[in-house]
Simulated assay, not measured.
Amino acid sequence: MRYANKLERSEFLLKYVEKYVEKKGKVLEIGCNVGRNLNHLYEHGYKGMTGIEISQEAATCLQEMYPKLADDAVIINSPVEDVIKKFLPDTFNLVFSMAVFEHIHPDSEWIFEEIARITGDYLITVEAEKTSHWHIFARNYKKIFENFGFKQVAESNCKEAGLELYTLRVFKKVRK
């Protein structure tokens, strides 16, 4: 539940989403937890929301804390590895994650190419990239997603969001 109280993180994310994605766009959050970020976007006019969350407890809390969002959004309670291949190419105008990709085990790194495949326009990552810990796998997301057809268009440290060790990156899909 303490995750829901970190509204400054959702505000920080919203500034970038509003700059790049129209409110009528389809949005996917990978690792939506109790839905704080999705709900914040929802309250600011975004309606085409989908969330993937591995934790049953978090998905249940989302329904209790944000019932309007839960009624209007598609919330998939599953590991991302089990559902990512089911989406069509370019399904979402925006795909984003906040402190989730860093927990993807190296055996599941194949999902990054799938994320690139289903992202139609923009991808936003907010991840720890330098810290290695037993449950954090440091990666260079700029290199990863540029290899899958994206160009980085913005980068920011996340200090104002209270995430000192994190980097926000915005990527735009390059059309050939």
Rank of each mutant, 00 (worst) to 15 (best):
M1Y: 10
E8Q: 09
E8T: 10
R9D: 04
R9Q: 10
R9V: 04
F12H: 03
L13R: 04
K15V: 07
V17K: 12
V17Y: 10
V17M: 11
V17G: 13
E18V: 12
K19I: 04
K26V: 06
V27P: 10
L28M: 04
E29D: 12
N33Y: 09
N33D: 11
N33G: 10
N33S: 15
V34I: 14
R36W: 13
N37P: 07
H40G: 12
Y42P: 07
G51S: 02
I52Y: 02
I52H: 03
S55H: 07
Q56G: 13
A58P: 06
A58Q: 15
A58F: 10
T60I: 14
T60V: 14
T60Y: 12
E64H: 12
M65R: 13
Y66T: 12
P67Y: 09
A70E: 07
A73D: 04
V74N: 02
V74F: 00
I75D: 01
I76P: 04
S78H: 00
S78N: 05
V80W: 04
V83C: 01
I84R: 00
F87L: 01
F87K: 01
L88S: 15
T91M: 08
F92E: 05
F92T: 03
N93T: 06
L94T: 12
L94F: 09
M98G: 04
V100M: 12
H103L: 13
S108A: 10
E109R: 11
E109W: 15
I111V: 06
I111M: 00
F112R: 09
E113D: 13
E113W: 09
E114P: 04
I115L: 08
A116R: 14
A116H: 13
A116V: 12
A116D: 14
R117C: 11
I118S: 15
T119A: 15
T119M: 11
D121R: 05
L123I: 05
I124E: 03
T125D: 02
V126E: 03
V126D: 00
K130Y: 03
K130S: 06
K130D: 02
S132D: 06
F137M: 11
R139C: 00
N140A: 06
N140H: 01
Y141H: 11
K142S: 08
K143E: 13
E146Y: 09
N147S: 15
Q152L: 10
V153K: 01
A154S: 00
S156R: 03
Y166K: 00
T167D: 00
R169K: 14
K172P: 03
K172G: 06
K172T: 05
K173I: 13
K173N: 14
V174T: 14
R175F: 14
K176G: 12
K176R: 14
